[in-house]
Design a binder for these strands. Structure first.
Lengths: 218, 218, 218, 218
DNA sequence: GATGAATGAGTGTTCATTCAT
DNA sequence: GATGAATGAACACTCATTCAT
């Protein structure tokens, strides 16, 4: 890859093999990520990933048993970053707060970039599906837990099923505005946040929260 | 293959060629549909579709210029069925009405079964993407128009962006409960309908509508 | 093909089957000819030939065992027309006479149009090659015989091998000017005739022949 | 495959990769050449060429983008060898000289062996046709230029069109005796040379040239 | 460890030929 | 006889994976 320097300088700094290996592995992961993202999974060949990472084809198979495994590694790497923090619903301005959370979450999604490959693979890779499903369950749990806090404080609608609301929020966040090029208008994050808040809080609660001034954040 | 009728009816001399051809074409469409659905588009070969339909490889190419064209034919066939009617929001029980609409829509989606292939192909087939995008725009338009009616009658929230609400309803309907195998809980249609109605009507409006008596909707 | 008329008129004129068959056979031959000519042999499919002749694919195989056989039939049909008459060398103006013969021959070649397919097939079809070789031997024989007449009358060069001269004349005629688009200049038939005559007659013989007056040729 | 050298020389450690690759490329070229020659272009499959060269199908496509490209490479390789030197007409024995040139040219043609494929491909590959046409124009130019020299020295017939003569010589040389298996007799090179010389020089000029003894070559 | 040339099963597609109607 | 739908072997070409160097 870029080992020429060592040869010139001698074996001096002696970068531990493991570290060099890690670099290569990361380069491959990174290349896989960017190629999967831009061309899709099936359309990306192992050779391309290797070339893009500056290593030989065979090297690819030293670090990953196959293309699929690289994807799984990618997922493990990135999936944690995808997990949003448990949202705080009770604040002086839940709408604005939620909007900023949504924006941040969307950026993470964008950066992770797996939206490009997942739909292609989920249906035919049950293991992958399970991994992802677990992640979604985790997210679902966090949101639900946040809602329960608010609900326990009597701040939410009484007639809505919290589970359904949770699920709705998650779906709306996942298919967030950014993806919405397809549908006509680009709803912006604040409007989306308002919609979500409407599902959670009766309007008067929002007014009350706002009037509290500096509501203590969780 | 599909000669069963003759067997039952006896030797009615001539099955018109066109009809036989239609039968074969349909068998291929059907096979394509079910294989695409179960294995995905890329993983399904023309040979397999032909075999599954009980014809030879070459026969496939008599009826369709290639795999993609079969998919497009499938889409044309099914896309109209996918279009939901413009929902009527104003009724004595919008929630129940909406729930039944959602259920019907979901059945259509299920039957059409393209959810399996579309995610795989959309990113790499701009024409297909355009066709679908147009369909979604149409749906979006219908929902929005329905909401406007209700809004003009002063029945809706005043502080929510109709476009965003429309988009939210569409997204929620598309990713409806059935798909929710992935996320833990299966929200049922009525709960989902309630959530949607909350986005549209203030609770007191719903009460008023209900009290109006038995207005028959659609 | 165009049998609908009979059905309307009844069995009245009763075109003998053989004749109708001949018509179809000829239509197929003609279609084969024109398609082979314009697209080459391999590039022409049996289906196309049938369609162009206005009959069904299967009908093709009633009249010809396969594509190759149609070509052979074509050859037999056309090869006789290809045979030039034994040229008369001794005339008052051999050059002009030869030029007109060349022109006529070239027209025949053009019309027959097999130059398009023969090169493609000769190397891989020994039987075809033999048929053609026989034809060429026949032509060679005719030219040689003509030359011998002239030679016996003492009109030709004495130091040239008649066989080689014959062969040269044949080759030049076959690759005649028309084909010469490829090489830069388009030699015209008279110049070519002069060249051929130079191979046969010493210049003074030509002068003598010319002075003989108007001997009618051929 | 072609490692015989190593076996003889011992284990000279590294056969440079490039050299191994060249060997394989050459083996493929050679296989292509011999298969095209014996079976024709269309009848030869890439798989066969690979098998004949002792490599796998995929390897073929490492060295050549497709079958056609291998042919083009073959042509480039061989076309230069095909170009005859500008013939020297003025010598003490033009006939003998020409005969030996013809023989040499014929050997080259034979070795190149493209006569087998060109007729098959020329009509349907305009690029190939252009490449070949250019080569022929070059040859035509060389011959014509040689003839002009002789003509300027007043050694040639005055009544023949030089262009036509040039073209005739070229055609005769191209369809040289060797190809003449098809026509009955095998004219030999000397006789053919005599014929060509007759087209260029009046007999008395030849006598004069011969009597000169050691005529200076060009 | 790293390389990249080699592999060969697998893909979509064509077309000469057959055969039920 | 005539039809044209059906056949299936064959082709050019790709790519995940292996392995000699």
């Amino acid at each position: 890859m870029a080992d020429r320097e060592e040869l010139l300088v001698g074996d001096f700094p002696f970068v531990p093999k493991q570290e060099r290996a890690q670099q290569k592995r990361n380069a491959l992961l990174e290349s896989g990520h960017s190629l999967f993202f831009s061309k899709g999974y099936e359309q990306t060949t192992a050779k391309e990933i290797a070339a893009h990472a500056g290593v030989a084809t065979g090297t690819f198979y030293r670090y990953f048993s196959d293309k699929r495994q690289l994807l799984m590694a990618l997922l493990e790497d990135k999936l944690d970053k995808l997990l949003p923090p448990e949202p705080t619903w009770v604040s002086c301005d839940p709408e604005a707060l939620l909007a900023s959370l949504l924006k941040a979450h969307n950026n993470r999604l964008q950066e992770v970039g797996l939206r490009r490959v997942l739909p292609e693979l989920l249906p035919k890779d049950p293991e992958l599906a399970e991994v992802l499903s677990a992640a979604r369950r985790k997210i679902h749990g966090r949101i639900l837990s946040g809602l329960k806090h608010a609900s326990d404080s009597g701040l939410t609608w009484k007639d809505l099923d919290l589970d359904t609301v949770t699920w709705s929020i998650m779906v709306l966040a996942e298919n967030g505005p950014e993806k919405g090029q397809q549908s006509g208008k680009q709803a912006d994050f604040l409007e989306l946040a308002k919609v979500m808040c409407r599902l959670v809080f009766p309007p008067d609660v929002l007014v009350k929260l706002r009037s509290k001034g500096s509501g203590p954040a969780e």
